[in-house]
Each structure stands twice: as C-alpha cells, then as structure tokens.
Write a protein that binds this DNA or RNA. Structure first.
Lengths: 106, 106
DNA sequence: TTTAAATGATACCAAAAAGTATCATGTTGC
DNA sequence: GCAACATGATACTTTTTGGTATCATTTAAA
C-alpha cells in the first residue's frame, strides 16, 4: 500500500513537475506535447510524469500509440488534508475547505 | 533572492520534516528536544530543522545556549498560494481561503 | 506492408539529499 | 574556573533524484 501523502508531496517538490501540473490544468496532453514545453529530453519528462502519476496527481489514458496525461485534482486531497492540520492557526478555515472538497470528489 | 515556494515545497517533501512540523505545532522545542522524538542523530535532526527554516516553515530563536524552534504557519502561504491555482477545479473555495489567510498574516 | 511516430525500458552519470561521526565553540551552573 | 551541556561545523558515506543516451516495442499511415 503506497503512502499517497508522501508520494503526492514528493511529486510536488520539483518545480518542473509543478509546471507540468499547471500545463495539464489547461489541457490534457501526450508525453510528446508536454515535452515540447521543457528544455529536456522526452525521457526526462516521462520520468516526471511517472512521479506525478505515482503521486496520484495525474491520470494516464492510453489512446492508440499515445498516452493522454490528464490532471487529477483530487490527488491533491492528501496534501490538503495534511495542511488542514494547521488550520488551528488559521481559525478553522482550512477545515471548511477540506469538507467542501470531500463533498465534490465522489 | 530565495524561491520561497520551492524551498517550502522542498521542506515538506520529507516525512520526518512533516512530523517535526506537527510536533512543533504543539510546542516550541530546542534541537535536543526535537531529537528525542526521532530515531536519528541530533545532527541529522538539525539538518532537517535548517531545511524547514530555509523554507520559512519554522523560526529559530536563540535563548542562551539553546535554540528554540517554533512553527511559522505563515510559511505555508506560498504552498497554499500555489495550490490555490487549482481551485478552478473546486469551485473557487481555495481562493476564499487564500484571501482569508492573507487578511490574517499582515 | 513498410516506414515513421509515440512510447517503454534499460543502463549509465552527476548532483543532491539524508545520514553518521567527530571535533570545535559557546553557555550554564556548581 | 571547570565540567557538563547545547549547538555549530566539517568531512565523509550511501541512497535518491534528475538527467542523458540508446534500443526495443507498438501503432498509425502512406
């Protein structure tokens, strides 16, 4: 059983991966399409996508010879859940947020 | 000029450091006191505290020969700010959160 | 049916991260 | 003053990470 919290935080720790998240928030893209936005090889980008997938932050849908990488916002839930612990310092507002999110994702 | 967003995400990527955050949320502690909670040397814990400090997630106050490590919740602001970008997937609730936080921490 | 395109997989490399051990420095208290 | 204590600092080792290069496999398309 994977530690989703750890995998998600790990995935977010790299700036390239956070950029990929933003990129995919606009459009679902293939690996090649994502690669064109970064100054590194396709293989390196694919590794980042694997880490994001392990963290539950994206989903990958095979389509013919392509793989469509799609953002998975609910993958951020463990991160928000962890951050929510600190809402005691912010007057319980993060708790409200978490409840709202949990209501949204199935 | 440090990249606070990167430093904060980097600091949160390690499970020990996240545990230290929780620990310090209850009480401000010296390095030795923090060390007693983990199965590693004092030097290793101190390194983690340095990373947390670099990320703006704790503050360190010298007191005599001790250093009081105190949680700094506002250091999470860059993280929440980045996450807020994805509130488009959650009906703008994270944006409300960010506004609320910004109102709290001068 | 070939050929080109998209991806998978592997080996390899360099740098960063996590940890230890050790010694130096500064403080407290008797 | 001096011994014990808390921390600082450095060197070193191991593992992980981010990256490249290369070749194999699968699929689309002419």
């Amino acid at each position: 059983m994977p530690d989703q919290t750890q995998n998600a935080f790990r995935a977010l720790a790299d700036p390239t991966r956070r950029d990929i998240m933003r990129l995919l928030s606009a459009n679902a893209l293939t690996i090649v399409e994502v690669s064109t936005h970064f100054d590194m090889t396709r293989a390196a980008v694919k590794k980042h996508l694997t880490v994001l997938s392990d963290g539950g932050l994206i989903t990958v849908e095979p389509r013919g010879r392509e793989r469509i990488n799609r953002i998975n916002p609910s993958g951020l839930a463990p991160v928000l859940s962890w951050l929510e612990f600190f809402d005691q310092f912010w007057d319980d507002r993060l708790a409200d947020l978490k409840t709202a999110i949990e209501k949204d994702i199935q």
